[in-house]
Design a protein around this nucleic acid. Structure first.
Length: 350
DNA sequence: AAACCCTACAACCGCCACCAC
DNA sequence: TGTGGTGGCGGTTGTAGGGTT
């Protein structure tokens, strides 16, 4: 094959970059560019660094017009909204924030935003209950004036499996052992699970037909037996089956995965609470992110994509379509389009 | 003042897709 | 067409610095 081997790892320096190394790398790239070969670059300029390390150093720290720290409220909201809609696609999210690197955003998310959005749900029980009530009121208000996220066939009635949720709620707190939730919390959780359950639905947003199709994509990979692959008539059936399995399954892998799913479901109302409280003016914005999952799932479910998927929904086609199309145009459209999609199920009038 | 803990961030690691050979 | 190098990406780790006990 005749290609030069990658860097000699035994003879490569690791760890923090010195100012001299930074200066060498920056000066060379500003004068000559990368030459299209990062692996060969450190040898050219006498750096005992791996080419990948040089690339990272340049992209994340040395290249011009980079911003470090000091994320604005607007940037916070963009990151949160995009994360909730496309997941940890940091490079795509970074593409929406000029001057920010994927590494920066990833670190910022992991150290601050994630805690802001997801964490602290187990702090003060009193605060939690208060916030839960507040959220419930917000949701009840939405439900009373907006029907757009109700699913055909389920409209104006509670899915039958919702009655099982109080029992499931006890199972959910798997990492702390069974925990009893008060009635308000159960009620709040039930409302949110109903919403979340419908987010896994394959229903078409504009369809008037009752959903009985077979394109539903299981949000988690716990169902492995052939008979379990029989399509569920709807999300309600799937969740009812899952909750039932949670109490009966003896396989540790299965229960672990169920626990993960339930943990995620448990986090769901808290995510909304935390995000809403931390960003009062952007509450709608955050909720749109969640409601948007349904739209995203719906947009991809009919294609029965078998590749990359996650419980956040398979959005790879949405992302890649927008991303590829926008790469040549400075990515101005992804943000608008994504937010437009996220708004799909948000109340039209507020 | 020392030990410990927490946070933020730079850097590394491993995987994957693409492409040259 | 298969193999291996390279770039790109996301996840994870290491560590410095500040805060707390």
């Amino acid at each position: 094959m005749g290609r030069a081997p990658c860097c000699d790892k035994a003879n490569v320096k690791k760890g923090p970059w010195s100012p001299e190394e930074d200066d060498k790398l920056k000066t060379y790239i500003e004068q000559h560019g990368t030459g299209g070969n990062w692996i060969a670059l450190p040898q050219k300029i006498g750096l005992k660094r791996c080419g990948k390390s040089c690339r990272l150093r340049w992209l994340n720290y040395l290249r011009p017009n980079l911003k470090h720290g000091g994320f604005s409220e607007e940037e916070d909201n963009i990151i949160c909204s995009l994360f909730l809609s496309i997941g940890s696609r940091w490079s795509i999210i970074a593409g929406q924030l000029p001057g920010r690197t994927d590494n920066d955003i990833k670190n910022y998310w992991n150290t601050r935003l994630k805690k802001k959005l997801l964490g602290r749900q187990r702090k003060d029980q009193q605060t939690r209950a208060r916030r839960g009530n507040s959220l419930k009121q917000e949701i009840m208000k939405r439900e009373s004036c907006d029907q757009t996220f109700m699913v055909p066939g389920v409209m104006n009635q509670s899915p039958y499996w919702s009655a099982e949720i109080p029992a499931a709620a006890t199972v959910m707190s798997s990492d702390q052992g069974p925990t009893d939730l008060d009635q308000d919390q159960v009620s709040t959780l039930r409302s949110l699970l109903i919403k979340l359950g419908e987010n896994f639905s394959d229903h078409q947003p504009n369809s008037t037909a009752t959903t009985t199709t077979t394109n539903f994509q299981y949000p988690i990979g716990i169902i492995s037996s052939p008979q379990d692959h029989q399509p569920y008539a709807n999300t309600s059936s799937f969740l009812a089956s899952t909750f039932s399995a949670a109490t009966n399954c003896s396989d540790k892998t299965c229960t672990d995965q169920l626990s993960n799913m339930f943990q995620r479901l448990e986090d769901f109302p808290n995510q909304l609470c935390e995000f809403g409280y931390e960003n009062p003016p952007q509450l709608d914005h955050g909720l749109e992110g969640f409601y948007g999952m349904e739209m995203i799932n719906a947009s991809t479910a009919t294609a029965s994509i078998s590749g990359e998927s996650s419980s956040w929904g398979d959005i790879s086609s949405l992302v890649s379509d927008h991303h590829e199309g926008n790469c040549q145009q400075g990515l101005p459209q992804l943000q608008d389009s994504a937010f437009e999609n996220l708004r799909y199920f948000a109340p039209a009038q507020r």
